[in-house]
């Protein structure tokens, strides 16, 4: 009981002295996670689409060659970034640019770049899987009403693929929220970095990290809830309205259309 009281007073002390810097750190963690995940998703969509382009036998030789080279580069990108720790990638980028170009990039920019590229490597495979999971008939039906390849992809296949991969995207988001802590090694003053500083200054390491733990949990828990909501929104209403058809059907339908818009 006594222990608990001292624990709580320690937590209160850390919070009073360093609460605002912990909140600043939290903001940076959120920033890195959001921008990194969205940029990563964009990279993933782009790479995923390119990786699902198939060559036909009668395609032009140049197209085949270009696609082969691009695919090789993309495969290398995915493999390299998935096979090395993000912490090491961050060190390489941050100190590498310093050593090679003699410039010190802003640590937060470096962090966002690393998280984006890293997430992109995972997202590429997620998006590719999502596209491949869509029944070929969807594309064929789009083709059969005269859509071009890009229309069929952007209007029919991708929206369905993106909906299907939302849980996996949410997962990446949560992982980024937590794993951004490794970026403290390149002096990004995100939550983990700020917690360490607070712990070092107060010698209340356990208490400081207890606070960090709670903040991380609240962040990821909120994100999970928001993502569920987004998924439900993407699914649209569970039921549909049946429209009457007794009177002049055309007028009737138009009225109903307006109502539902």
């Amino acid at each position: 009981m006594e222990k608990l009281a001292t624990f709580l007073s320690g937590v209160a002390k850390v919070w009073n002295l360093y609460g605002s810097s912990l909140i600043d750190g939290t903001k940076i963690t959120i920033l890195i996670a959001i921008v990194g995940t969205l940029a990563g998703l964009l990279i993933g969509i782009l790479v995923g689409i390119i990786k699902t382009i198939t060559v036909k036998k009668d395609d032009h030789l140049v197209k085949k060659l270009v696609l082969k080279i691009v695919n090789f580069i993309l495969a290398a990108y995915i493999e390299v970034f998935r096979s090395t720790p993000m912490m090491v990638q961050a060190m390489l980028l941050y100190y590498g640019t310093a050593w090679i170009f003699n410039i010190r990039v802003n640590a937060i920019y470096a962090a966002i770049v690393i998280v984006s590229i890293n997430t992109g490597a995972y997202m590429a495979e997620i998006v590719r899987g999502g596209i491949l999971s869509i029944d070929k008939g969807q594309y064929e039906a789009a083709h059969s009403i005269g859509m071009t390849h890009w229309q069929a992809m952007s209007l029919i296949v991708l929206p369905q693929a993106l909906r299907n991969i939302m849980p996996a995207v949410g997962n990446e988001f949560i992982i980024n929220m937590k794993d951004s802590c490794v970026l403290s090694v390149i002096t990004v003053n995100e939550l983990f970095f700020q917690t360490k500083s607070a712990a070092g200054a107060t010698y209340l390491t356990f208490h400081a990290f207890a606070i960090a733990c709670v903040i991380y949990f609240i962040l990821t828990f909120t994100v999970t809830k928001i993502l569920r909501y987004v998924e439900r929104r993407m699914d649209g209403p569970e039921s549909y309205t049946i429209h009457g058809s007794q009177s002049a059907p055309e007028a009737e339908i138009r009225v109903n259309l307006k109502q539902t818009k």
Partner: peptide, 27 residues
């Protein structure tokens, strides 16, 4: 030509992300 020669498939292949009306308007 594809737009003018339509096709009805055994497996329907309706666009799953669109409503019945949107299926008929998007093309």
């Amino acid at each position: 030509y594809c737009a003018k020669v339509g096709m009805v498939f055994q497996q329907f292949n309706l666009f799953n992300n669109l409503t019945a009306l949107e299926n008929c308007t998007i093309g």
